[in-house]
Amino acid sequence: MAGIEINGVTKSFEDIKALDNVTVTFEPEKIYGFLGRNGAGKSTLINIIANRLFADSGSIMIDGRPSAENMSIHDKIFCMSEADLYDDSMRIRDIFKWTGRFYDNFDIDKALEISKKFELDTGKRFKTLSKGYQSIFKLTVALSLNVPYLIFDEPVLGLDANHREMFYDIMLREYAQSPRTIIIATHLIEEVSGMIEDVVLIDSGKILLCEEVEKLMEKSYCVAGLASQVDDYCRGKEVIGTDALGALKQAYILGEREKIVGSESLQFSQVNLQKLFIKLTEKGGESI
């Protein structure tokens, strides 16, 4: 089966459980938002997918083959990570050259073109770049590489608004040109909520949900009104969070929106992804 299948992956560091029996599948040619709070386990899972860490138990299959220490698999996957793994005394254009030798599908002309757009000086050494430009360099490599699985771990860290916009723009153009799986791990949900087709939500090392964004939006809503009426309405429903303001109450609910007798004075509204994320991870831990 094509895609990245993660099956029952558990990983601990010392006595901290970073991932707890994680099972999730990333399908081909989709853009995923991999969301979670800081320390939720996003980077750990990504590093296991990228063969940088080993799972304590469980397996990861990429296109039907086990991914750990499998050279033919890692030709298909590129992971842009927050950590700097490049030889930092090397000039940017030399790193481009080496990347071209390491990967069959690296387009060096594209890399130079993107560098120009970002005004990234390719004659500079990695370590002399600012934090923001180091990120830009890493994004440039990823965007110039045509592999079926592209993973970004906090891609826009340290980038200003213009550069973020440019990154999203180029990424979507590349995606439209040759569709591939793109996984964007981030806690900046508002920026990516329009771009992602599916969302995978992780909290305290557990997958809370994995769902198409549109379906998720359809089946979640917010109901507001007098606290007593809201409480009546919520009975028997899956409430993921509430906000209270005096006698007023707002409840966030997962499930079909239904109007019942006595709910005429209640106000119903959509919940956006950001709010949903906050409510789900506030509660934390419980799977739905």
Partner: peptide, 9 residues
């Protein structure tokens, strides 16, 4: 580090 980043086992 560098080779790991570039997908080497």
């Amino acid at each position: 580090k560098m080779l790991m980043q570039n997908g080497f086992t």
